[in-house]
Amino acid sequence: MNQPTCRSAPSIFQFFRKFVMIRRFGALLSSAFIVALPTLAQTSDQQVWTSVSMTGPVAENSRLLIWFDGHARFSQDAEGLGVTILRPGLGWKVNDKVSLWGGYARVTSDSGSGDLEEDRFWQQSTYSVSKLFSGQVSGRTRLEQRWRDTGDDTGWRLRQSFRWARPLGSDNLSLVLSNEIFWSLNDADWGQGEGYDQNRAFAGFAVKVSDRSQFEFGYLNNHIRRPGPDASNNNLAISYSLRR
């Protein structure tokens, strides 16, 4: 690999200055949503969220698809592992713009007094929406059925996300903005409350590693409704994705 030269220093400085601006924009994006919610006291945490994912056809030119994503989220000022998620699934390519999916997820959370286990079945549609401001808009609509070992009820939850990505000068670096809202469809005896659950607003960059893989990193604000004070966590999000 070629060693960086002095000439590259200004461009590196500009890159990180843009990153700081994007982080601030992400906070504003989240705030624009949160101001529409009732004003409540909030708690906050600084977290690091990491993930890996793989999607693609089971064989070349097959319409049958596979899905996997795994997550490790570090909370309490990123000093301890707070959440792990393993989520495999299968899908079907309807056409070049729409795919349908279904699968299972195992979620383990640190409750402070021990691990809290959650099982989920999930169904979703992923789709391309349109071009907007020289970027591509895509969406995902996911329905979840949730069970926890602290209750007997099934919690139904709907998640809607939209993502906008725009290349910055080349196809290897893109600006990414996304937002996902979580809406619980019923009450459950283990703690789920009907209505707004949480929102995740992200602003960052995608760096293309190869034709089929990329890293994504940036600022993610996670606003969570709670029985007491709501939580508004500031997270560094880092992900690696691979397309078969």
Rank of each mutant, 00 (worst) to 15 (best):
I66R: 03
W101A: 11
W101Q: 13
H71A: 02
A105Q: 12
L65Y: 03
R63P: 14
S99L: 03
G103V: 09
I66E: 06
R73Y: 05
L81S: 08
K97H: 10
L81W: 04
G103R: 05
L90G: 10
G80A: 05
R73S: 02
I85C: 01
W101H: 14
I85L: 15
G103W: 06
G82D: 06
A72L: 06
G103Y: 09
A72V: 05
R87I: 00
E79W: 00
D96Y: 04
G80R: 12
E79Y: 01
A105F: 04
A78G: 07
G102E: 10
F68G: 11
W67L: 09
P88K: 11
A78S: 15
L100F: 12
T84D: 00
G103A: 08
K93Y: 03
K93G: 12
L65M: 13
P88G: 14
V94G: 08
V107F: 02
N95E: 07
L65N: 03
D96F: 02
N95F: 01
T84F: 03
W101M: 11
L65A: 07
A78C: 01
G80D: 03
K93N: 13
Y104L: 12
L81K: 06
S99V: 06
V83W: 00
R73K: 10
H71M: 03
P88S: 12
R63L: 13
P88F: 13
G102Q: 11
D96P: 00
R63K: 15
F68V: 06
V83K: 02
G102I: 10
Q76K: 13
L65H: 05
G70C: 09
F74R: 07
L64H: 03
Y104I: 10
G102K: 09
D96L: 04
G102C: 11
G89H: 02
P88M: 13
W67G: 01
L100Y: 05
R73W: 10
A72S: 10
W92Y: 15
N95Y: 04
W67D: 09
A105C: 04
K93P: 02
G70R: 06
W92H: 14
N95T: 07
G91V: 11
H71I: 05
W101N: 12
S99A: 15
R73V: 02
R63G: 07
L81M: 08
T84Q: 08
W101F: 15
Q76P: 00
S99E: 15
V98M: 12
D69E: 15
L90W: 06
L65Q: 15
L65C: 06
V94C: 09
G82L: 04
D69Y: 06
L64N: 10
V83I: 12
Q76H: 13
T84H: 02
V107C: 00
T84W: 08
S75N: 13
I85G: 00
I66V: 05
G91I: 11
I85H: 04
G89I: 01
W101S: 08
R106N: 14
D77K: 13
G82C: 03
